[in-house]
Design a binder for these strands. Structure first.
Lengths: 146, 146
DNA sequence: TTAAAAAAAGACCTTAATATCTTTTATGCG
DNA sequence: CGCATAAAAGATATTAAGGTCTTTTTTTAA
């Protein structure tokens, strides 16, 4: 069970917009991509699917760009995983045994289930807005890096 | 952090050989691949790298095939992961944040570390031989399936 | 000592994820 | 209006994992 790079780009992209989007300034893909060191057009595609789902907003044209809406900050992380990665990620045996369940567990089964349930729990109760805590520029640094 | 299909093939392949290899019979790739429903030539490649490392043995020619040696059953799972998948799998931030460590943890950091450490612990103290417990045909069914 | 069997080796193919490049569409402003 | 700007769209490229196929090498046993 793991999360794709695309999911990481999506989450970090939204967070960046949410953080920089105060006082009605819209955020352009160019800025997001360069600050986060993420491939520009690939990020564009990902943000587009998120916009289509209404989790983020955008407008074209001069002074256009991406901006948060009333759903953005209250979106649960699990929704974003589902959107980008699908959910079957949660259902595979870590050791790729064919029959692996509580009746016939692989040696990792109980650990995996414990971890997975706790991740699902956290992702179900955590929203994108919840992630934004502490000093703003510290937070940006943690998603931007370099 | 996840384990590749190749790793699963490797582990299941070795286990199959270990289980069927009693009374000096060597096990042919054809049999392993068909019983485990795994692509034959791809499995061949994987077993070859394992044989090269001395974890399993093989001979060519009539009545040749794969068989266990004195290292096979005492090989730790962590060794096999390292061999097939490398170890950097253990070191990535699940959310792909750029700066993620105990000083600047992502929201999943503590859960991931807890899980990872426990997997590393289990894999470090569990050998391939340790996995073989219980009824033999039940065990084969759990790695073979269909 | 040769024919068959079986792994080893290596060339090539497929697929999904990731990434790039070009063209189109919508928007705001002078 | 018409031009510049920025996202949307879509075509194409790259990469790594996974998978297939053919040829070579080694071994055994008749």
């Amino acid at each position: 069970m793991y999360f794709s790079k695309s999911f990481g780009y999506a989450l970090r992209g939204i967070l960046y917009v949410a953080l920089m989007n105060d006082e009605n300034r819209k955020i352009q893909i160019e800025e997001i991509a360069s600050r986060l060191s993420v491939p520009r057009h690939f990020l564009g595609k990902i943000l587009r699917t998120i916009v289509k789902q209404g989790i983020l907003s955008s407008t074209k044209g001069p002074h256009g760009g991406f901006f948060i809406n009333n759903k953005t900050l209250s979106t649960q992380l699990i929704t974003l995983v589902w959107l980008i990665d699908g959910t079957q990620r949660f259902d595979e045996c870590a050791l790729h045994f064919r029959k692996c369940n509580s009746a016939h567990p692989c040696p990792l089964h109980s650990k995996v289930v414990e971890y997975r349930d706790s991740v699902i729990g956290i992702f179900g109760e955590t929203t994108i807005g919840d992630l934004i805590v502490g000093n703003k520029s510290d937070f940006i640094r943690s998603i931007a890096a370099r």
